[in-house]
Design a binder for these strands. Structure first.
Lengths: 219, 219
DNA sequence: GACGCCATACCAACTGGTCGGTACGCTGAC
DNA sequence: GTCAGCGTACCGACCAGTTGGTATGGCGTC
């Protein structure tokens, strides 16, 4: 241990704070917040305990920072994904589901959601962490709203700005996150990633139905 | 098991073991597994630490027992519910969703699922707890399969025993649990029980669509 | 029906290790 | 010289699990 003390940016490019955050995402996602000790995080990040408490006031502060860091890094990944290129808004929504589906690999702890895992533990004991998780999940959901609203509007010949359309789009956007989070939980319980694919299939089918519902053709 | 030996209904009706299990369900559901200490459980159950380790080898054993206890008590509640009385299998399935909806109150920790909460923490660290949670969730899902299969068979004019019907019914049964577990997670993150109602509405709509899909009349 | 025997159920005090957090010292950059 | 960015050493609290003991009650025996 005790990595190179002299040149900080030599072998390990990231700063200590960032190394701690990436380590926190990886370790907490696997083992949970309470089961992860500060020493675990320091070891994973290759820094000392002094460095940890230099950057974060306490463990709870780190957890909030990790949730925010998670929001930022995942937002970048989704913003750069190809499903945005579809012309048809319904295709963009279904493309989002395909993209989520493609992220699922063999190891559940590598594709499951950090904030979904944390919020279960933090809900009653750490309100600030719970709120950070809420911001992350609901903030991500809002990025879907405009596409869903456009797709709904196309099927009902209603204006996208219509209030009932906006509300229903927001509800459906939240529902995507509900299904994904639930799929992670149940796939962990069953110890089987196939359940995530299966769940996304059902959700995809639901969206397809909703987008065809009253729909005439639109293009 | 081990029924009441002498006078079960004296001052404290339940035996120490059962008091610990009911306390475990209540406390762990609120605070999570790792955040709950053995002393917490003893205090909640009104027993000493010695009693705890008399009945359970360690904390992990208690967690498994609590998951099993949860399975048993919830199974009784669902078995006695009125939605089974519908003649139409589709109505039984939708009645199940209504029943789940009716269980949702104001306090999330009072309606959320113990095993869904525990499995997130236990997945990587306590395989025996994870498996107990998996048995609980998937075991509950199987109780829905026959009704879903019957409802699907009615819409497609296929035999209930048909293999594809059985598989799809099993998949939909799992999906109900996915949505419910996800609704609990996201409603905790948003700190808003309304999200559970909203999610069940979407699931109800999906089932209604699936049961009407290719459907002619059936009776 | 009294007695010895033992199992079950439970309690209070303690222990050894762990964990979050602190105190303080070093060092290079500006 | 001072301050960010660490590292080392350490502390106090807490916590899972242990130990050693007590109360109770069933049961065979005589």
């Amino acid at each position: 241990m005790t990595a190179a003390p002299t040149s900080p940016a030599a072998a390990n490019p990231a700063t200590g704070r960032e190394r701690l955050l990436t380590a926190a995402v990886a370790v907490i996602r696997q083992r949970g917040l309470h089961a992860t000790t500060v020493d675990d995080l320091c070891a994973a990040a290759g820094v000392s305990k002094g460095a940890f408490f230099h950057h974060f006031a306490n463990k709870e502060t780190l957890a909030v920072a990790a949730a925010d860091y998670w929001s930022e890094t995942t937002a970048e990944a989704f913003a750069g994904a190809a499903y945005h290129d579809h012309i048809d808004p319904a295709a963009r929504v279904l493309g989002y589901l395909d993209f989520r589906d493609s992220l699922v690999g063999a190891d559940i702890e590598l594709y499951s959601c950090l904030v979904g895992t944390m919020v279960q533990e933090a809900y009653a004991t750490n309100p600030s962490v719970r709120d950070a998780c809420g911001r992350s999940i609901l903030g991500h959901a809002t990025t879907l709203e405009s596409d869903i609203a456009a797709a709904l509007a196309a099927t009902t010949a209603t204006a996208v700005g219509d209030d009932s359309i906006r509300r229903e789009a927001a509800s459906l956007a939240r529902y995507t996150q509900v299904v994904l989070q639930g799929a992670f939980v149940v796939s962990k319980a069953a110890n089987d990633p196939a359940l995530v694919h299966e769940s996304i299939d059902h959700l995809r089918r639901y969206f397809a139905m909703r987008f065809e519902a009253t729909a005439p053709t639109h293009a």
